[in-house]
Design a protein around this nucleic acid. Structure first.
Lengths: 235, 235
DNA sequence: TCCCTCGATTGGTTCGACCAATCTGATGGT
DNA sequence: ACCATCAGATTGGTCGAACCAATCGAGGGA
């Protein structure tokens, strides 16, 4: 199986402690040599883990002084949402899922704005990705469906040619796949997603002047998320 | 001065090469030992740099096989936008700035939606942050103004109590401060920002039933960004 | 032709040492 | 009593070498 590396284990534990507040903001971390004893790994391994957390914005470090816990709400990114979700109440997890889908819709609105201006021919790659998604949707393998959905998003984002939209949307999409509860709710009935994509594609392949407004397109995605949240709430 | 660490230098060079496409997606990186020779540092230092890039989603690694360049458009995040901006044409940089501000507005819309439902008393911390921002705005020190603006955002996000909004909005705000060109354009006339914040705060401190709609509030931010982009375009 | 095996390659971890920045507390002067 | 200063301890940063573990690939055998 996927034997995780020692460095990942150490980083995971510390990340979790920061996310849960066991290590308060501004607090000093134990020295590297001490952490090495605690986790029973070499100091170099501890350093690798701490380096990752620093890159994630969870720690700051000064030579001779030590590591300080930063305020992840100001310097963190979505990557650590999974650690943040662990141990929260069902109600809180539902609120998080709702917010996450809302953010996705807001970003999708920008993407759709741009796609409305693109010649239909440029959507060939999107059509292919959606057709692959339809195939995957029949497999009932949630992981495979989720992967195919990421491919659809990548195709859509590629057409926008906007690095900003790509770099903003990708983390949102990727974190969805790392929240099993939410991911299962999204793909519990993949046909819902297939229908939404078909509707979007049909609208965007119309002649440019006849395409629905961005608001009208957004309705399709809003309905999809509404279904997902209802499914999530009734558990 | 700020003597950067060797590990940061190595990571920066490799990050830049990936962002610029010198290292193509799917390509294998040179082995660690070889990179150590190239950069004239220890292999452990190279490993630390590669570990950061892996955490940033730029590389994948398999023991015995090596490092592969991932598609940062799918697995990266906003952190690497600065590397992506370097070397682009003025026109492209303007499009990036425009997109970035558009994303910020979309996220701000969600934040304002929630703030409209919050009792005025909860906005005391926001008022304090805005007053500090007004003081900083008089200093004409762009870095200080930008820092105070981040404090305002943090206060706004804290009121929402939404970890998702916090983790989504922070990277956007932080990357703005790392793009000098855009940052200078935003704060060239700080009074513009002060006026916008005052208007927002006044609107949100009204009795809940008398507050303007989220759309009306969004207009204030849109106007602010319009000014910024005009300033950026005329250079 | 296919498959297996074994050596070479490459990342993962450990150990030990030393350098550099910082912190702390004792010292000594005012 | 207060404070500046300095030396030693603490702590992160880098280095070098060694060995383990997963993978790859060329050569040989069925």
């Amino acid at each position: 199986m996927l034997e995780s590396r020692a460095v990942d284990d150490v980083a995971e534990v510390l990340r979790h402690e920061i996310a849960r507040g066991v290590l308060a903001v501004g607090e000093r971390l134990a020295p590297e040599r001490q952490l090495a004893l605690r986790f029973e790994v070499n100091r170099g391994t501890v350093r690798a883990a701490l380096g990752r957390l620093e890159a994630e914005g969870l720690l700051s470090v000064r030579q001779g002084s030590g590591y300080l816990v930063r305020d992840f709400r100001r310097t963190g990114s979505l990557e650590l949402l999974p650690s943040l979700v662990a141990g929260r109440s069902a109600k809180e997890r539902l609120a998080i899922a709702s917010d996450l889908l809302a953010v996705r819709r807001q970003l999708a609105a920008l993407v759709l704005e741009r796609l409305r201006e693109v010649p239909s021919a440029a959507l060939a790659s999107v059509r292919r990705a959606i057709e692959d998604f339809e195939l995957a949707a029949q497999s009932r393998d949630v992981a495979r469906v989720a992967a195919a959905d990421l491919d659809v998003l990548a195709a859509l984002l590629a057409v926008t040619e906007s690095p900003v939209l790509q770099l903003c949307a990708s983390p949102v999409a990727n974190v969805l796949a790392e929240l099993p509860e939410l991911r299962d709710a999204i793909y519990a009935e993949p046909q819902t997603n297939v229908m939404a994509y078909r509707a979007l594609l049909a609208a965007l392949e119309l002649p440019r002047t006849k395409r629905p407004s961005a608001d009208q397109l957004a309705v399709i995605l809003a309905e999809r998320d509404r279904v997902t949240l209802a499914r999530l709430a009734e558990r």
